[in-house]
């Protein structure tokens, strides 16, 4: 009998490699996306009482990752039976790269930090945009993969 993937060191190693790449991507894209808010800091400057900030980096990363995972899993499922190669892609790219790219702990921590800074309305905006944006993006990714699969069959 073959081992379950999560007890097979080759798959665990694959997830570790993918997770390293995904986390690196999260750090780099997250930092870059933070600059998106620069124009808004002119419109809504911080005052002596409140320092305005918003975790746009994590939001962008999580929404992009939700789209990517929706696309990948739907595309793989529509190709039929899971071969060894497809399983490596699903676990290495899906669980590893995209799973490591997105994060829930940072979302939770930043929500707490916004609340601690007295920015309750931004905390609410952050969680609503994350959940609604993530769900919409994921459905979008699924739809893109489904359409591509139908086109392939139609040819």
């Amino acid at each position: 009998m073959t081992r379950a993937p999560h007890r097979d060191w080759r798959y665990v190693g694959l997830v570790a490699l993918g997770g390293a790449a995904g986390s690196l991507g999260r750090y780099l894209l997250g930092g870059w996306a933070g600059a998106l808010l620069t124009p808004l800091t002119v419109l809504f400057p911080s005052t002596a009482d409140t320092v305005l900030w918003f975790p746009i980096g994590t939001l962008v990363v999580n929404v992009v990752g939700a789209l990517a995972l929706g696309y990948l899993l739907e595309a793989l499922a529509r190709r039929g039976r899971e071969t060894v190669r497809r399983r490596k892609i699903r676990i290495g790219i899906g669980t590893g790269v995209i799973g490591g790219f997105t994060t829930y702990s940072t979302l939770a921590l930043e929500t707490q930090q916004l609340l601690a800074d007295g920015l309750g309305w931004l905390a609410l905006l952050y969680v609503v945009l994350s959940l609604a944006g993530g769900t919409a993006a994921c459905l979008g990714g699924i739809a893109i993969a489904a359409r591509a699969a139908r086109r392939r069959k139609g040819r």
Partner: peptide, 13 residues
Amino acid sequence: LCGGFTTFSTATV
């Protein structure tokens, strides 16, 4: 560590 451990994309899917 925590960033890689937790995941938003899988939870959404």
